[in-house]
């Protein structure tokens, strides 16, 4: 498999900062706003990502990290900071 592979990347560990940066970009894309507007501790629902829409994040996580997470991930970890911590832990565990 070449380094330039476009498939899901699955390195042994992913730094939390990378996860956070990726997540903020993803959410800013959905909300059509700049990444600066996404505060780490703001509930996603409060900044406009409703609970049904947030189910779609599980597909992004799978595409990006090759990691299967519950669709309700953003319900149980409702901020960028909480999701980052959750994904960091899950990625380290596998």
């Amino acid at each position: 498999m070449s380094i330039a592979s476009t498939g899901p990347t699955a390195p042994d560990t992913v730094p939390a900062a990378d996860i956070r940066g990726w997540l903020v970009e993803r959410i800013a894309f959905y909300l059509e706003c700049s990444t600066e507007e996404i505060a780490e501790d703001a509930p996603l629902v409060d900044i406009g990502l409703d609970s049904v829409y947030s189910l779609t994040l599980c597909g992004d996580v799978e595409d990006r990290f090759g990691l299967t997470v519950e669709p309700t991930m953003a319900w149980d970890h409702p901020t960028v900071g909480a999701i980052t911590a959750h994904l960091t832990e899950e990625l380290a565990r596998r």
Partner: peptide, 14 residues
């Protein structure tokens, strides 16, 4: 149809 679905820009707003 799937090409069009792919071109749809996902948005939580509009």
């Amino acid at each position: 149809l799937h090409d069009e679905l792919a071109a749809h820009r996902p948005s939580a707003r509009d």
